[in-house]
Amino acid sequence: MSKHALVLFAHGARAASWAAPFERLRELTQARMPDVRVSLAFLELMTPSLPELAAELVADGVAHITVVPVFLGQGGHVLRDLPLMVEQLRIDHPQTSIAVVEAAGENAAVLNALSDYCVASLSAHAAPD
Protein backbone atom coordinates (compact mmCIF):
# COMPACT_ATOMS: atom_id res chain seq x y z
CA MET A 1 0.00 0.00 0.00
CA SER A 2 1.10 3.54 -0.71
CA LYS A 3 2.48 5.68 2.07
CA HIS A 4 0.52 8.59 0.53
CA ALA A 5 -3.17 9.38 0.74
CA LEU A 6 -5.33 12.05 -0.82
CA VAL A 7 -8.35 13.19 1.17
CA LEU A 8 -11.16 15.07 -0.54
CA PHE A 9 -12.67 17.14 2.27
CA ALA A 10 -16.26 18.31 1.82
CA HIS A 11 -18.89 19.92 4.01
CA GLY A 12 -21.45 17.14 4.34
CA ALA A 13 -25.25 17.24 4.30
CA ARG A 14 -28.25 15.47 5.76
CA ALA A 15 -29.27 13.94 2.41
CA ALA A 16 -27.08 11.00 1.42
CA SER A 17 -27.63 11.87 -2.27
CA TRP A 18 -25.69 15.12 -1.72
CA ALA A 19 -22.45 13.12 -1.56
CA ALA A 20 -22.92 11.46 -4.98
CA PRO A 21 -20.89 13.99 -7.01
CA PHE A 22 -18.12 13.89 -4.40
CA GLU A 23 -18.02 10.10 -4.62
CA ARG A 24 -17.81 10.36 -8.42
CA LEU A 25 -14.93 12.83 -8.01
CA ARG A 26 -13.25 10.40 -5.63
CA GLU A 27 -13.68 7.54 -8.11
CA LEU A 28 -12.34 9.60 -11.04
CA THR A 29 -9.36 10.70 -8.97
CA GLN A 30 -8.67 7.20 -7.67
CA ALA A 31 -8.69 5.86 -11.25
CA ARG A 32 -5.99 8.38 -12.19
CA MET A 33 -3.84 7.50 -9.17
CA PRO A 34 -4.26 3.76 -8.53
CA ASP A 35 -1.23 3.64 -6.21
CA VAL A 36 -2.58 6.33 -3.86
CA ARG A 37 -5.50 5.88 -1.50
CA VAL A 38 -8.13 8.50 -2.33
CA SER A 39 -10.82 9.00 0.31
CA LEU A 40 -13.66 11.34 1.23
CA ALA A 41 -14.00 13.03 4.61
CA PHE A 42 -16.67 15.42 5.81
CA LEU A 43 -16.81 18.39 8.14
CA GLU A 44 -20.25 17.56 9.51
CA LEU A 45 -23.45 15.55 9.09
CA MET A 46 -21.70 12.69 7.22
CA THR A 47 -18.97 10.19 7.96
CA PRO A 48 -16.13 9.73 8.11
CA SER A 49 -14.96 12.94 9.69
CA LEU A 50 -11.45 14.10 8.88
CA PRO A 51 -10.10 13.03 12.31
CA GLU A 52 -11.70 9.57 11.95
CA LEU A 53 -10.31 9.09 8.47
CA ALA A 54 -6.84 10.39 9.42
CA ALA A 55 -6.67 7.93 12.32
CA GLU A 56 -7.63 5.08 9.97
CA LEU A 57 -5.04 6.15 7.38
CA VAL A 58 -2.29 6.41 9.99
CA ALA A 59 -3.24 2.98 11.39
CA ASP A 60 -2.92 1.61 7.84
CA GLY A 61 0.63 2.97 7.59
CA VAL A 62 0.03 6.13 5.58
CA ALA A 63 2.84 8.63 6.26
CA HIS A 64 1.75 11.54 4.03
CA ILE A 65 -1.78 12.92 3.79
CA THR A 66 -2.80 15.67 1.38
CA VAL A 67 -6.16 17.30 2.07
CA VAL A 68 -8.05 18.93 -0.79
CA PRO A 69 -10.91 21.13 0.44
CA VAL A 70 -13.66 20.55 -2.12
CA PHE A 71 -15.28 23.92 -1.42
CA LEU A 72 -15.96 26.64 -3.98
CA GLY A 73 -14.78 29.42 -1.70
CA GLN A 74 -12.75 29.97 1.41
CA GLY A 75 -15.42 30.71 3.97
CA GLY A 76 -15.19 30.08 7.70
CA HIS A 77 -14.96 26.33 7.34
CA VAL A 78 -11.85 26.47 5.16
CA LEU A 79 -10.28 29.52 6.83
CA ARG A 80 -11.02 28.66 10.45
CA ASP A 81 -12.40 25.15 11.07
CA LEU A 82 -10.10 23.18 8.80
CA PRO A 83 -6.82 24.72 10.05
CA LEU A 84 -7.83 24.03 13.66
CA MET A 85 -8.72 20.46 12.78
CA VAL A 86 -5.42 19.91 10.93
CA GLU A 87 -3.46 21.47 13.80
CA GLN A 88 -5.02 18.92 16.15
CA LEU A 89 -4.31 16.10 13.68
CA ARG A 90 -0.65 17.09 13.58
CA ILE A 91 -0.55 16.92 17.39
CA ASP A 92 -2.37 13.56 17.43
CA HIS A 93 -0.25 12.07 14.61
CA PRO A 94 3.19 13.74 14.78
CA GLN A 95 4.76 11.01 12.65
CA THR A 96 2.45 11.87 9.74
CA SER A 97 2.96 14.68 7.24
CA ILE A 98 -0.35 16.48 6.64
CA ALA A 99 -0.61 19.07 3.87
CA VAL A 100 -3.63 21.16 2.94
CA VAL A 101 -3.94 22.70 -0.51
CA GLU A 102 -6.13 25.61 -1.62
CA ALA A 103 -9.89 25.19 -1.81
CA ALA A 104 -10.87 23.68 -5.16
CA GLY A 105 -12.89 26.77 -6.07
CA GLU A 106 -9.86 29.00 -5.55
CA ASN A 107 -7.84 27.10 -8.16
CA ALA A 108 -7.61 28.72 -11.62
CA ALA A 109 -7.96 25.40 -13.49
CA VAL A 110 -11.12 24.52 -11.56
CA LEU A 111 -12.61 27.97 -12.18
CA ASN A 112 -11.77 27.71 -15.89
CA ALA A 113 -13.46 24.28 -16.06
CA LEU A 114 -16.58 25.70 -14.38
CA SER A 115 -16.55 28.68 -16.72
CA ASP A 116 -16.27 26.34 -19.72
CA TYR A 117 -19.29 24.45 -18.43
CA CYS A 118 -21.28 27.67 -17.95
CA VAL A 119 -20.44 28.91 -21.46
CA ALA A 120 -21.30 25.52 -22.98
CA SER A 121 -24.62 25.43 -21.12
CA LEU A 122 -25.67 28.71 -22.71
CA SER A 123 -24.61 27.50 -26.16
CA ALA A 124 -26.54 24.27 -25.69
CA HIS A 125 -29.75 25.99 -24.62
CA ALA A 126 -29.70 29.38 -26.34
CA ALA A 127 -32.65 30.23 -28.51
CA PRO A 128 -31.79 30.74 -32.19
CA ASP A 129 -31.44 34.36 -33.27
Rank of each mutant, 00 (worst) to 15 (best):
Q74W: 03
F9E: 03
L45N: 01
D81K: 00
P51L: 00
S115K: 10
V38P: 01
G75C: 08
V70E: 01
E23V: 13
I91M: 04
S17W: 15
S123G: 15
N112S: 14
P94A: 05
V70P: 10
L72D: 09
A104T: 01
Y117N: 09
D116Y: 11
A19G: 07
H64N: 10
L43G: 03
Q30H: 04
S97A: 14
V101F: 04
A10P: 06
S123I: 12
V62P: 00
E106D: 11
R26H: 10
M85R: 05
L57D: 07
A126H: 13
S97K: 06
L122W: 15
G105L: 02
R26E: 13
S49F: 00
P128V: 05
S2P: 03
A113N: 06
P128N: 12
L25F: 07
Q95A: 10
A54E: 09
L79Q: 11
E23D: 14
K3L: 13
A41M: 02
V78R: 00
P94H: 08
T66L: 03
L82P: 02
F71L: 08
I98D: 01
H93A: 04
A19F: 01
V86Q: 02
H64D: 11
H4W: 04
A108T: 10
F71C: 08
V70K: 00
E27K: 08
L45C: 04
A55G: 12
V58T: 15
A63Y: 06
M46S: 06
L79G: 14
A63F: 05
H11E: 01
V119Y: 12
A108D: 11
L25N: 10
L28G: 15
V119I: 15
S97I: 10
A104K: 00
S2E: 07
A55C: 05
L114S: 10
S2K: 04
G61Q: 12
Q74R: 05
G61V: 14
V38H: 01
L25W: 03
V100T: 09
V110W: 03
T96K: 02
R24K: 13
M85L: 11
A16I: 11
E23N: 14
D129T: 11
A31I: 09
L45Q: 02
L53Q: 06
P21L: 04
Y117D: 11
S97P: 05
A31E: 07
A5Y: 01
A113E: 04
L50C: 09
R32F: 02
P21V: 06
R80S: 15
A63W: 04
G76L: 08
G105D: 04
F71I: 04
R14P: 01
V38Y: 00
P34N: 10
Q95K: 09
D92K: 03
A104P: 08
A5K: 01
H77I: 06
L72W: 08
A10N: 01
H4D: 15
A63I: 08
A108L: 13
A113C: 10
H64I: 14
F22M: 11
A20V: 11
P51Q: 05
H93W: 09
S49W: 00
A127G: 09
R80F: 14
L79S: 12
G61A: 08
S2R: 06
H4S: 14
T29L: 05
E44K: 00
L111S: 12
L6Q: 05
R14D: 00
M85I: 13
G105R: 00
Y117F: 14
E27H: 08
L8R: 00
V70I: 06
A16R: 06
P83W: 07
